[in-house]
Simulated assay, not measured.
Amino acid sequence: MINQYNPILKKIMTNKNKHNVKIKDAKADHGLKENEKTDSDEDVIQNNSSDGISAEAEITKLKDTLLRKAAEFENYKRRTESEISNYIKYASENLISELLPVYDDLGRSIDSINRGETKDFETLKKGVILIYEKFKGVMEREGLKEINSLGKEFDVDLNSAMMQIPKDDVKPNTVLEVIEKGYKLKDKVIRHEKVLVSSEPN
């Protein structure tokens, strides 16, 4: 804040010095002593007083501006923190909304079974498959991708080897079997695929 007022203070002091020099020169021309007051002295006092009032007004204005900007920043900070908090709190809202129809279908299927309305196995099977496909569609729209490494070379970034099995008819480090599926969310692996891997025969 002090640095902001320096130009104003410098201006006041410069004007004051200029007036003092003029007065000294005028007194010297008229043979007056330096400490003797003249009408010019009174003018200088009035001018300096006027400059001082202007500087005070400018300082007050700058202080008001600073306080207003500080208040605006605090309001912006609180608003941003609130928005971030709500975003984190309701981050799963879209996914939950997408899953609600699947949740409803499962509930209706269970109710139907409990009431004895679904006795035929094939009908039940078709219902479960439809629900699974709907659920799978939701997950894929959210960016979920299944890792399928069967028959491919073992990749430490995608796979987790549960066991190595010696094989003479398969290239070493080949995925022989998937024990548990792995998944990627967009480009990030969120669960490694648990696999059995071939090794050289003993």
Score class of each variant (00 low, 15 high):
residue 202 N to F: 07
residue 14 T to E: 14
residue 189 V to I: 02
residue 14 T to V: 11
residue 155 D to F: 03
residue 165 I to A: 08
residue 184 K to N: 03
residue 156 V to W: 05
residue 131 I to E: 02
residue 160 S to N: 15
residue 191 R to I: 01
residue 115 R to D: 08
residue 121 F to A: 12
residue 126 K to A: 12
residue 139 M to I: 03
residue 16 K to F: 15
residue 56 E to G: 10
residue 27 K to H: 11
residue 188 K to Q: 11
residue 131 I to V: 07
residue 77 K to E: 07
residue 15 N to T: 05
residue 30 H to Y: 11
residue 153 E to I: 08
residue 101 P to R: 08
residue 126 K to P: 00
residue 4 Q to T: 05
residue 151 G to E: 01
residue 61 K to A: 09
residue 77 K to L: 10
residue 123 T to I: 13
residue 68 R to E: 06
residue 157 D to G: 09
residue 79 R to H: 11
residue 178 V to A: 11
residue 146 E to Y: 06
residue 161 A to D: 02
residue 38 T to H: 08
residue 59 I to W: 04
residue 141 R to D: 10
residue 97 S to D: 14
residue 133 E to H: 09
residue 118 T to C: 06
residue 90 Y to F: 15
residue 167 K to H: 11
residue 180 E to I: 04
residue 180 E to S: 15
residue 143 G to R: 11
residue 95 L to H: 04
residue 107 G to R: 12
residue 70 A to W: 01
residue 107 G to N: 14
residue 81 E to I: 09
residue 149 S to I: 03
residue 95 L to M: 14
residue 28 A to G: 08
residue 75 N to H: 09
residue 188 K to M: 11
residue 136 K to A: 09
residue 120 D to F: 04
residue 172 P to H: 01
residue 118 T to S: 07
residue 143 G to I: 04
residue 174 T to H: 09
residue 51 D to A: 02
residue 156 V to P: 03
residue 92 S to H: 10
residue 195 V to M: 05
residue 39 D to E: 08
residue 154 F to Q: 03
residue 90 Y to T: 11
residue 181 K to M: 09
residue 123 T to C: 00
residue 123 T to V: 13
residue 10 K to E: 11
residue 33 K to P: 01
residue 28 A to V: 04
residue 146 E to M: 15
residue 81 E to G: 01
residue 38 T to K: 12
residue 68 R to C: 00
residue 45 I to L: 13
residue 4 Q to G: 00
residue 49 S to A: 11
residue 92 S to R: 13
residue 196 L to A: 05
residue 45 I to V: 13
residue 59 I to V: 08
residue 181 K to I: 02
residue 104 D to E: 05
residue 65 T to I: 05
residue 152 K to P: 00
residue 175 V to A: 04
residue 70 A to H: 05
residue 177 E to W: 04
residue 164 Q to N: 12
residue 192 H to V: 04
residue 149 S to G: 07
residue 52 G to F: 04
residue 88 I to E: 15
residue 100 L to M: 12
residue 26 A to Y: 07
residue 34 E to K: 12
residue 48 N to G: 07
residue 154 F to M: 08
residue 113 I to S: 03
residue 122 E to K: 15
residue 71 A to R: 14
residue 68 R to T: 07
residue 76 Y to T: 10
residue 131 I to Q: 06
residue 53 I to F: 12
residue 137 G to C: 04
residue 120 D to K: 08
residue 158 L to M: 07
residue 76 Y to S: 12
residue 3 N to K: 14
residue 138 V to W: 07
residue 15 N to S: 14
residue 80 T to M: 14
residue 50 S to Y: 05
residue 123 T to H: 10
residue 175 V to Q: 01
residue 94 N to C: 00
residue 33 K to E: 03
residue 145 K to T: 12
residue 79 R to W: 01
residue 40 S to F: 14
residue 34 E to M: 11
residue 158 L to H: 04
residue 88 I to C: 05
residue 117 E to A: 13
residue 62 L to N: 03
